[in-house]
Design a protein around this nucleic acid. Structure first.
Length: 608
RNA sequence: GCCCUGGUAGCUCAACUGGAUAGAGCAGCGGACUUCUAAUCCGCAGGUUGCAGGUUCGAGUCCUGCCCGGGGUGCCA
């Protein structure tokens, strides 16, 4: 609304210079309330284009500007600094803007609908999920939810690492363990598989470096003999794994059955974790590497046909300008993960019909994705049939989770911390805190509250800092109720619910839905101005794929509400009209909080 | 070597993508509960934004060069 008036004024003031060109009025909320509520920074950018003094430009805009009933009258003092134009809304105008926000959808605008594939989760067979998967799951799901909020059709894809030599290795190991009577195929657990994976990997990695070192430093015949035996054994194991891979690829029933067991056990655990984390990642999202196994040769043939692939040292590579070559086929004829990802691009764009494909994957894969995207585009795999342009392929990278020592988050013995254990501990800690803070809750309700608070704390900690940076994992901070945390936001919501519960008891809970908003106190004004930022925040997250922006907004909203809560009595307001206005403001705040948290995949609570 | 990242208060993080005096929380100090959940709120103190140049009305943000950390770098995924 404000923007339109500025556009009109700018158009009028500079009709000669600009013609019909529409100029972005660059309206932003003022950072500092002493300047006003909103400001336009258009004069400065315009001055640069027109080679005029910014203040002169601002003056000409202000002369033509008609803000009439919207804002306090402008005068010379409205132009500040190099040419900021400061605007202070009239209370009625602010109230009417907030009233407009108060409708289904909370002002979030639907964009032209796109089909968007989001690559999430990224688990591997026979491996426990760890904190790295937490990020791919939680951030990916949050991006997906936010895009859905903007009206897009979002398809989550869980690109499970369920194929290739390492998997064949575990499959082989499991078969041997079962036939040796160490394990029963029926009762095998993910913990077993995780253990076997590590052993198998160890057993198949020849310690060539160690052997060389032993020779060089003359560590003695015994050490050398041991190492020689290790190398021989590893070489043999590796050979057997390769054979297992061949069997798997050729569909040998016995091998495939064991592989299926690995798959089922792993995915059951993965789905359980995704559910505990309250994500919308389900079985349908699964599209493992194995599902592309029959497409890889075709992809490579296509690259050869198009003259993109060339042989180098026995391997097949694609050279892309400015990038290291992409290896698409090994000299032994095997395919690589780049090949699989190329097949996945084709499926996502040409079968699913994605206009945009987003990979929520570890930042270490940055080069890999650059290579895959460049190759896919040149090969035409990223273009829908009949489309004029390639679909957008984006890597949304994220950093590592660190321990308080600044090193990757691991257990004392150096193992990855299992995600299931992390969730368990979060719940336990949340339960203890909840018992302490609110002893009145029944055991049943406390258990529910503890789960919701724990998951909120865990996810929020992961979402609230800049995605690409590493972050430090800290139980006390994420579960604290001070600062930018999940529990703090839930608490703000709970306080509102509490008001409505009390209102119900006193028979005051009706009639506020259409109440006239009276924005009088400064806390009410700040709360109202903050609420108005919700739609643009959703848009910013959808564009930038940075959920921490939503976190920042929600934290400010919760803070604005807390200050309002301290200062402005709701149920004991001075008169009925004020009470109804405040009830409506509370209700709207609650819905915006809940909707914003929903973008992040975080549930709210009635009590805590 | 080359490429990608990051460096902001003692600590953990922001800064709406070039806007006004760089903001929060923790830790420290000082206030506010007979009250709608004090799991909160208010105040004080804390800064050469790694360093040096450059671009312009204006730089934590952009460009160049250094310094430090993390990661990646053709036959693992």
């Amino acid at each position: 609304m404000l923007g339109e008036r500025f556009v009109a004024a700018i158009g009028e003031a500079f009709a000669e210079e600009l013609g019909d060109r529409r100029v972005d009025p660059l309206i932003t909320p003022s950072k500092n309330t002493q300047f006003g509520d909103y400001q336009s920074n258009a004069a400065m950018s315009l001055a640069k284009q027109l080679k005029m003094k910014p203040r002169d430009v601002a003056e000409r805009i202000v002369e033509k500007l008609d803000l009439g009933e919207i804002a306090e009258p402008l005068d010379a003092s409205s132009i500040a600094g190099p040419g900021f134009i400061n605007v202070r809304l009239r209370p009625e105008a602010l109230a009417s803007l907030v009233t407009e926000l108060d409708r289904p959808g909370l002002g979030v605008e639907a964009e032209k609908q796109q089909t968007i594939v989001v690559d999430v989760c990224g688990v591997n067979l026979a491996k426990q999920m760890h904190v790295g998967h937490l990020r791919a799951t939680v951030i990916g799901d949050a991006m997906a939810r936010t895009l859905e909020k903007r009206g897009h059709k979002v398809v989550r894809q869980n690109h499970v690492g369920d194929w290739g030599l390492p998997i064949a290795m575990v499959t082989d190991k499991l078969m041997r363990e079962v036939s040796a009577g160490h394990l029963s195929m029926d009762s095998v657990t993910l913990d077993d598989l995780d253990r076997l994976y590590k052993i198998a990997k160890e057993e198949s990695s020849p310690d060539a470096k160690g052997l060389k070192a032993a020779e060089r430093f003359s560590l003695g015949p015994k050490v050398q003999a041991e190492l020689e035996a290790q190398v021989a054994g590893a070489t043999e194991n590796l050979e057997r794994a390769k054979q297992a891979l061949v069997k798997l690829q050729s569909g040998d029933p016995e091998t495939v059955a064991v592989w299926q067991k690995l798959y089922d056990v792993t995915m059951a655990a993965c789905m359980d974790t995704c559910q505990r984390l309250h994500t919308k990642i389900t079985d349908e999202a699964t599209a493992g590497e194995s599902s592309f196994r029959d497409k890889l040769a075709g992809i490579v043939d296509l690259l050869i046909e198009q003259g993109l692939a060339e042989e180098d040292d026995g391997a097949l590579i694609v050279r892309n300008e400015g990038l290291d070559p992409t290896l698409v086929r090994k000299s032994d004829g095997g395919f690589l993960y780049a090949t699989t990802d190329l097949a996945a691009v084709r499926k996502r764009v040409q079968e699913i019909g994605a206009d945009r494909v987003i990979y929520c994957v570890d930042a270490r894969q940055a080069l890999h994705f650059k290579q895959v995207f460049a190759t896919a585009k040149r090969a035409g795999l990223a273009r829908k049939a009949g489309a004029a342009e390639d679909s957008t392929l984006e890597h949304a990278p994220f950093g590592m989770v660190l321990g308080d020592d600044g090193r990757p988050f691991k257990t004392r013995s150096g193992e990855n911390v299992k995600l299931g254990d992390v969730i368990d501990e979060a719940i336990e800690r949340a339960s203890t805190i909840t018992k302490d803070k609110n002893p009145e809750l029944s055991d049943e309700e406390r258990a529910r509250v503890a789960h919701t608070v724990a998951v909120a704390a865990l996810k929020y900690a992961d979402l609230s800092s800049d995605r690409v940076k590493d972050y430090v994992f800290d139980w006390d901070r994420m579960l604290a109720f001070e600062g930018n945390t999940g529990p703090y936001l839930l608490f703000a919501y709970v306080r509102i619910m509490s008001i409505f519960r009390k209102a119900g008891e006193q028979g005051l809970s009706s009639g506020f839905e259409d109440a006239e908003l009276l924005i009088r106190e400064s806390e009410e004004k700040t709360l109202a101005l903050t609420l108005l930022r919700y739609p643009s925040t959703v848009a910013a997250v959808a564009r930038s794929l940075e959920p921490h922006r939503m976190c920042g907004f929600l934290y400010e909203l919760a803070g604005a509400f807390s200050r309002f809560f301290e200062k402005c009595q709701v149920l004991r307001a001075e008169d009925e009209s004020v009470r109804l206005s405040r009830l409506r403001l509370c209700d709207l705040t609650a819905r915006v909080l809940a909707d914003g948290l929903d973008c992040l995949g975080i549930e709210t609570l009635e009590r805590m």
